[in-house]
Design a binder for these strands. Structure first.
Lengths: 332, 332
DNA sequence: CCCGGCGATGAAAAGGATTGCATTATTTGC
DNA sequence: GCAAATAATGCAATCCTTTTCATCGCCGGG
């Protein structure tokens, strides 16, 4: 039923080889032939059969994206960026949700391996041995996780935290708390590095957690924060920070009057909370875009791309920005 | 490099046909042969090449899912259900976000058409003429939109609204407002039908909107609600309802003391708002599951499935439930 | 005038699985 | 115990595209 390359070839009076080349290797065919073939293809509504192409090229034109938790609004935004970039390159994106579980991540990658050309892996929770099991299966680009010898896109976690700390210092806070994310989170380690900026200001940082990155953890943490006697708290991410706000409100603690709260990610609801949440915009959408771009590069240039570089440099377009809103104010 | 069906055939001492059948048409091969072949296939780590299979069967084992807005947390939950069901059937899911735009929906479907066996289309905004352009391209199952002659999974919109109305009536509310969703939303029409239950209670319903289904619209609507002099408001969805709560808090209007607020969808943040939002749980995850299931049925039973049934019956497992939380209380 | 080389095109193989048809093995019925 | 039916398996065609290799014509140089 569908129009094949043979139909086009007949209609254009050339061989199928020429049609194939006119469409995918334009420089190999004479301009007038190319134009004629393309015109015919268009008029017939020819669409190459991706299965047939994939069979011979070994490429699927599909990419995989694994995120830890889709219900955290940060990841849909990442997805959006990834999706957009993939479409520009005529690639489709498979999405999978690992539910914050490293083993599930590994299973998902294995399941996708044969159906995609490469995978973008967000905030992977896999430990080293688990990682080893998937690294050979399919090209992988990591987001927010450095894996020696493998390409990754790193958000400006530490930089964002430094801005947050500077902001709080400028507001006169001397004692602050940090709510740690999951122990297995590479991102959490990075954010802690940024927090060391507190030393420079002579601030004291109380570490709480680790916590699962959920609203409920934030609520739970809020009471600990109050007990810790700090004047400001920085949460691993916005979802937790919103939990903190909620519980503080419940206990009648004024924000930012008595405690200032800072989140991370700038999810949509951060701006919608009361008080609106001060947070770090990590440019998730751009990161998604960048990761797909990196992956496409890797796929285009096979093998030559294993610089033993342990650490990808921070892309300038991924510089974090502190978004100051109503949840932070001068120290009491 | 990869192990092919031929490798398995050789190792098992049978023909490729037998291997193929042992794996995909088990009943056609003798049990002991089947067992042997499968054992060999497993030990060799054989994975059928989907491109090759697709080439001959014409199936891709991929499904498409189009949602209007991924940043509305309702859709990720739907996606989760769809994804889970698809995986059970060894299908992958392509995700696309139409940004609430009917024309973009049509473009996305056209782009996916050749790469998927079918599409699940959520809360489609397409008008009739636009619909016509995509209906023939690929099998489509609609969620929350009835299209005569086409399969759909309908959530219990009207039923949920009736429960909301009954709830408010029981609390003594006589005058309520409804915040309409987008004009092009079929769901919105259904929800209005449910609101007619108000007549039975002798309640008066003030219609406001239409609004874009966003937080900001809720904020905007809140002032109108106050001006309308009603004691309760039902919003098109939770995101809007949260906007209402936010603005009411800003204006110092007690909830539910002076105005009760009801949302719809039961997104995660509904429970996290202060006060926690009373809302209608439409079973999004199950609906996603059901839609994929329906789609798989359609694909399995070609053509016989066009009963001129205009309206799919409500599936019992999709019955809506009103979740009563702190945002509703007795009328002032 | 002929030949090497180059550019454009065509012929045909390859890629891996499914499936209709042919063939062989096994059972059933009488 | 044999014919016929049936079950199990093998053979080979097929799906559609890309790509290697061969062919052809033409150009420029000798």
């Amino acid at each position: 039923m569908a129009v094949t390359i043979l139909d086009v070839a007949k209609a254009a009076g050339v061989s199928v080889s020429t049609v194939s080349r006119a469409l995918s290797s334009p420089e190999m065919v004479r301009p007038e032939t190319r134009a004629r073939v393309r015109a015919v293809a268009d008029s017939l509504g020819y669409r190459p059969n991706l299965a047939a192409r994939g069979l011979i090229t070994g490429r699927t034109a599909n990419l995989g994206l694994v995120v830890p938790d889709l219900t955290n609004p940060f990841f849909p935004s990442l997805l959006k960026g990834a999706q957009a970039r993939a479409r520009e390159a005529d690639h489709a994106v498979f999405l999978a949700d690992s539910q914050e579980d490293g083993a599930e991540e590994a299973r998902l990658v294995a399941a996708m391996a044969k159906q995609v050309d490469g995978v973008v892996m967000c905030a992977s929770r896999m430990d080293r041995p688990l990682l080893e099991t998937v690294l050979g299966l399919v090209p992988i680009v990591f987001i927010n996780r450095a894996v020696p010898g493998h390409p990754s896109v790193i958000m400006d976690n530490a930089g964002g935290m430094r801005q947050a700390v500077d902001h709080l210092a400028a507001l006169g806070h001397r004692r602050i708390a940090y709510l740690n994310g999951p122990r297995s989170s590479w991102t959490n380690k990075e954010r802690r590095k940024g927090l060391r900026r507190a030393d420079r200001h002579g601030m004291e940082v109380t570490h709480l957690g680790p916590f699962a990155p959920r609203f409920e953890s934030g609520q739970q943490a809020a009471d600990l924060v109050i007990a810790a006697g700090v004047s400001a708290v920085v949460a691993y991410n916005d979802v937790m920070a919103l939990g903190v706000l909620s519980r503080l409100a419940e206990r009648g603690v004024p924000v930012p009057g008595r405690i200032s709260v800072v989140g991370c990610d700038d999810i949509g609801f951060a701006a919608m909370a009361t008080p609106a949440l001060t947070t770090v915009d990590l440019r998730g959408e751009r990161a998604g875009r960048a990761a797909v771009e990196t992956l496409l590069d890797v796929l285009a240039a096979p093998e030559q791309s294993t610089p033993a570089r342990t650490r990808a440099p921070l892309r300038p377009d991924l510089t974090a920005t502190l978004i100051v809103r109503a949840s932070t104010g001068p120290a009491a």
